[in-house]
Design a protein around this nucleic acid. Sequence first.
DNA 1: CCTTCGTGCTCAAACGTTAGAGCAGTCGAC
DNA 2: GTCGACTGCTCTAACGTTTGAGCACGAAGG
Lengths: 405, 405
Amino acid sequence: MSSDVHRQGEAADGTVKPRVRRADPSGAAASPETGALVPPARSPVEPTDEASRAAVTAPGAPARPQTVTLKDVARAVGISQSAVSMALADSSRISPATKDAVRAAVKSLGYVPNSAGRALRAGRAASIAVVVPNTGQHMFGHPYFMHLLVGVTAAANAHDVALMISTNPDETHGVAAYERVLRSRAASGAIVASASINDTNVNRMVDAALPVVLIGRYPQLPHAVSVGVDEVAGAMAITLHLVQQHGLRRIAHISGPLDHQPAIDRYEGFTRALAESGQPCTHTLAVGDFSEESGRAAARQVLDTMSDVQAIFAANDEMAYGALLELRSRGLRVPEDIALAGYDDFGISRLVTPGLTTVHVPAEALGQRAAALLFDLVEGTTPVRTHTVLPAEIVVRDSCGTHPA
Amino acid sequence: MSSDVHRQGEAADGTVKPRVRRADPSGAAASPETGALVPPARSPVEPTDEASRAAVTAPGAPARPQTVTLKDVARAVGISQSAVSMALADSSRISPATKDAVRAAVKSLGYVPNSAGRALRAGRAASIAVVVPNTGQHMFGHPYFMHLLVGVTAAANAHDVALMISTNPDETHGVAAYERVLRSRAASGAIVASASINDTNVNRMVDAALPVVLIGRYPQLPHAVSVGVDEVAGAMAITLHLVQQHGLRRIAHISGPLDHQPAIDRYEGFTRALAESGQPCTHTLAVGDFSEESGRAAARQVLDTMSDVQAIFAANDEMAYGALLELRSRGLRVPEDIALAGYDDFGISRLVTPGLTTVHVPAEALGQRAAALLFDLVEGTTPVRTHTVLPAEIVVRDSCGTHPA
DNA sequence: CCTTCGTGCTCAAACGTTAGAGCAGTCGAC
DNA sequence: GTCGACTGCTCTAACGTTTGAGCACGAAGG
């Protein structure tokens, strides 16, 4: 049985010699798990166009796998296939006895309706798509999407609908990947989880006149159906927590790229909270790109330019972690010397020492709501409101200081 | 514009009052991000059966969204639709001039082939599925799947094939979710990422005579095509590292559930390494379930029963983290008092302090290889080998002790 | 001049499904 | 006794695609 097993990297004598990789002990940005993937010995699948693929398949094409269709059920029961179809649709025009017979035959033959036939007839597929445009895998691999997917999956399962996911291989294929899914009617609607507010793809999708639900806030697309989180409120809450609960006054914000709506909203929440706190606060801003390394760089900038910083609020946990590394390397203690807060709450914040105070993004709930809205759209029920905003919730851990009182 | 915005949890006066949740400062198992999701104000989508949904859609059913089909292109060019089809397939029977005209018309009309029509005609859909059977979301939400998905997505994109994901809503729906995807021909093949070796669903899938690639090692299914990682070698390598590089002799293993192939393999690698190390080692075993809490419990058991433990090797990073918490709470230092190692390398191991020495699981590469194999199967090319095994690679960080020169 | 061949298309059928029209038989009402 | 309505089905068309068969035409070969 082991004779047909092929071990890559196996030495000639049959012993397995695992490669050892030594991690950067500084724990900095050269993160092993996001590093280049182990290159497969076999070259990656090369793109094949429809024509040549068909040519390859044609010669030795095995008999199409035998499927049981309506016709088979009809033959078994001794009625027409339309009658079977109607029976399965529980039509009142079919006698109970016939329905029973049909159900029995369906079960014994193992009939499952062919989705292509159904989709063709119905004009739409029984599936929805989650599209993540404009993404290298750096975006798609994020835990955020995993949680989103869990939510969408749950809703799709409940609705008895299949789920397709569609990402863009690269910028040049930009449009293709997701537009085709919709235009080809492979999915009857889509949930779009994008990023940049300048993403023209998003506008395209919305214009496509197909059911689309956006995740996030899209002020420039007032008529698009969207579901988001109240990011401004979340950022306000955590900033106010720093100011009011911990009495901090000199606070830096490390924002994400400011063509990114969440980055804008979190920054706005930050400034608004300072303005409304009633306290004389000083603040500064450093812009990152949501990556750990950019957070570290931003922290460096903050520490070098603002004297006596008391707290840093980063627009996501990854940058907060980067900042933590910078603080650590300068011998600054968190939270004793500087308080730290993040945003997202997808694992990092809990695992890091000290645990990061952060704002929880309910990605799973977002996914579930988005799917529910999409189903309304697909079924022609116009949703009552176009924009749904879920509440933010802050999670207090240790990085912002010991709990007063 | 903000008038149609509905804020959940918004107070009557319009101010947003975010809820504050206080995290368990012990940092133990009550992990916020895996906790119950924020319950949506609106009740979750209730299951709707096919019949009643159709009834809802029927009355006000809007005109089916206008799509441009082959017929439209044919009309525009002034030829038959078969000619258009042949032109697009680059048939030699069509003149270059006509092909050009067709391509121009396709472009100007924005024709995209309807996937249902194509799938119906071809007998199979241009999509593959990733199925995760036997799963509460506890399994599906794991970073492992995210990485797997990234790999599969890349391959699917390169092959110009859509990707469906299919999970089981719950145990009762067990079969339905994935079996339907395949039996209904919604996908032309599937990648199965399962867990338990007793999972009868996996056998069912394999028996279904549809292209299926399993992820992991399935010794009991020798004829199924699978792609896995050499878990035994990985566990051996890390164990030998502890024994040979760090001179540790009293080592405990915290395994996963032993009806789970990776758990079995990692345990086997552990014992085999000890046997082959040439050193007189003492070891013990505690069984967990791959959860952080079970890791903590197992560590408790180990520390209470085995005297003078020098190292703990946990079968995954989550349990290693649980063990770390237990050690920390007993005032034991890692690695000074006890060395620690994990397995998986999906983020936790890098973020925790001290960084965990672990074995890297190349989930993305697994996904990519699995997809490549699946495409071979779907296209009728029988792959040369049924089992592919990727090499393991250990990642040395700080939890196993300082690097001996 | 007739046949053969090649070219460049058209025609028709088929994939599996659903739904509207139609139809044979029964039954109740007038 | 005739009419209409109802019951319980069958027939047929249609969704959009691909493909094998067929056909009209011109050129080449006998």
